[in-house]
Write a protein that binds this DNA or RNA. Sequence first.
DNA 1: AAATAACCTTAACCTACATTAAGATTAAGA
DNA 2: TCTTAATCTTAATGTAGGTTAAGGTTATTT
Lengths: 210, 210
Amino acid sequence: MRAALDKKSEVASEEALKSLFDSFKEILPLKQHEKDEIRFIARQRTIRKRQFILQEDDICKHYTFVVAGCFRMFSVDKKGGEHNIQFAAENDWISDIGSFFSEKPSRLFIEAIEPAKILQIEKKDLLKLYAESLKFNRNFRVIIENKYVELQNRVLQNISSTAEERYIFFIEQYPHLSSRLPSTQIASYLGVTPEFLSKVRKTISTKRRS
Amino acid sequence: MRAALDKKSEVASEEALKSLFDSFKEILPLKQHEKDEIRFIARQRTIRKRQFILQEDDICKHYTFVVAGCFRMFSVDKKGGEHNIQFAAENDWISDIGSFFSEKPSRLFIEAIEPAKILQIEKKDLLKLYAESLKFNRNFRVIIENKYVELQNRVLQNISSTAEERYIFFIEQYPHLSSRLPSTQIASYLGVTPEFLSKVRKTISTKRRS
DNA sequence: AAATAACCTTAACCTACATTAAGATTAAGA
DNA sequence: TCTTAATCTTAATGTAGGTTAAGGTTATTT
């Protein structure tokens, strides 16, 4: 048993670890000793709805794997408007990678939209994995490659499509998210006001009917 | 000397290799035997202005390192409009990562905006590096992490800033690009028409004067 | 040097989306 | 159960940016 665990984090449960290990299966599955390394460094936390796991000016100190629940990452502009950059639900990773590696204060917030359960890995532990293991370098490289492609598609959408097209694309790409998120959060992700999204949804549903 | 080199690619020159090795220096510098591995697999090509190194429906088969010159990556919408996703000048990497790994046809084009010199690594050679070497996994992981952060900033800009703010941010972030690119290319990157960018530039310069 | 193509700007009009404000619906607390 | 807060919708008016079209400037090519 480990010596000092901070009060809010716990030793990771086998159930939570299983979903993490499963998510690696599609890349390079872990061997027993590699699973044990993760078991040793991953901390589990239970997060309430509306709780933040990162706030502006914090330095992002963890890679966070979402076991259950849903988060949004957003920034706040000078006028106080919030802009969602990404969502992360079960089996997804979320963290401010820029702040994590540069160790500069983040300009972003990460907030639970639903009650959640997460696993977190600290930077020093992750760096140790990277220094010693080809497989962890490789698995996290693949994870970020996939996220890079997702983001690139998003940029493409943003500069070349209307709000209606972007909304349709979103609900096709993330059906599990679109049904459970409040539409005000989706609007913020698409870069439109909730009012306008409402209008868009109406025109779509009248199109369907005719 | 290697057996079969296709006609358009050459053995990499020492000069070109040096800039590639230098770009790794900031992450984990290469040892002699690692440099030799790159020397063995990298192919050098000279690209003319307006020449494509990737076209829609091609499968992206290379990671491309830009030694000299400048490229743009863009997509074409149903109406024929072109949308620049990224530029890549000296010491930058460019390829359609999605197509590269999935081996599905690309929806993107990569075109030289200036006469250019590049080094290319084929997928099978890169995968061999990844399978054998922790350092190459790590270096390319870091490269893509940085590109991910850049892209994320871009998404943020797109959903939260006006065209004027985006333009100012662009010329601050990429001063070496903004001076050498035709403004029509910058407009396509910002997601506005050349006409509107012209209007924006005028209002900025009249603001400066007053 | 002329000719063609690429690039840049101006201006009039038009459309997608923002803003404000009000009311309606649903969900969460006490 | 009542209350307050969060969420969703509708509609009026305003604005950023698109579209079209024209003329001007700079590069390339012949």
